[in-house]
Design a protein around this nucleic acid. Sequence first.
DNA 1: CAGCTGACTTACGATTCCATAAGTCAGCAG
DNA 2: CTGCTGACTTATGGAATCGTAAGTCAGCTG
Lengths: 168, 168
Amino acid sequence: MKDLREDRDAWSMANCSIAKALEIVGNRTAMLIMREALFGTRRFDDFARRVGIGEPAAAARLKELTAAGLLERVPYQEPGQRTRYAYQLTQKGRDFRAVIVALRQWGDTWAADEAGPPVVVRHENCGAPVHAVLRCDNGHDVQPGESFIDAGPGLIRVAADSPDSSGG
Amino acid sequence: MKDLREDRDAWSMANCSIAKALEIVGNRTAMLIMREALFGTRRFDDFARRVGIGEPAAAARLKELTAAGLLERVPYQEPGQRTRYAYQLTQKGRDFRAVIVALRQWGDTWAADEAGPPVVVRHENCGAPVHAVLRCDNGHDVQPGESFIDAGPGLIRVAADSPDSSGG
DNA sequence: CAGCTGACTTACGATTCCATAAGTCAGCAG
DNA sequence: CTGCTGACTTATGGAATCGTAAGTCAGCTG
């Protein structure tokens, strides 16, 4: 159980989960669309207006997020209106909540202006603010510095002086 | 304590913490550099090689992250070598760990290939895998759907049919 | 003081991403 | 069958970002 950080060049992040995630949501607008989706936005032009982007950008991101399975395009019909399509979170998309919460929390702490954060997420049952914390499978809270990096099943080891120990 | 999502157009995300955070780390390479920094990388060309980007991109991102206060450029000297500079995490940067953990966790669950994730973060004391969970200030675990959005001190309310209820 | 090396910077062209503006398309209302 | 509206697509041009390749700069070594 040696910490892999001690010999960082002996392994590759070619199949890094973070990099794979960022291929889907690795740009500002995709993240902000996920923020809006988690805030309850469903309709095309609401996404564009509330995120503050143009329609082509909204269409492109919504298409990518739908293709990646974070959103699904479902028909709906308001009385006296024709059938339209809404973008609804899938389980994969709902699971993304932790990322948005962590990002909002970091932004609230380190990047908010003097006025403070615009919104607070609260626990339904007790009203207390919600935040993201690190915990291990045994239920212990994990403080900064109390973790180490271990090999996962998909780890790719490389020769120590291989020209390609890189990965994205 | 009405959920703000019920009237999403009555308030603006102009000073959104998520958007502010994304102005610093809202691109793929900045996120991957933060990943590497949290994995222990300190030196310029290690960042470039391990992230898999060119030197100009590495220089630009490291400069931005340093200017934003997530990293600091500190001198170091190896025996018999001249003084060089390393990029070290600040508290602001270390706090970003939760975002990277949430992103990795989501990627492990939803975007990993058959081989599985390359690395596992484990709790130092007990060896169990670490993950990000949502918790409220009263110590309750927050399950999906058990939270609502409340006004924060920086909330900007807008007229219901204002042309600019947007924000990024 | 010349060579060497790590840490950058500059130059360049390709690609991606974006906003604005205009056009398309479907189907209910009249 | 025309008007209207929401949900897009197409066209165009500008800005950001990227990789490759080459150049610069500082300071220890010899």
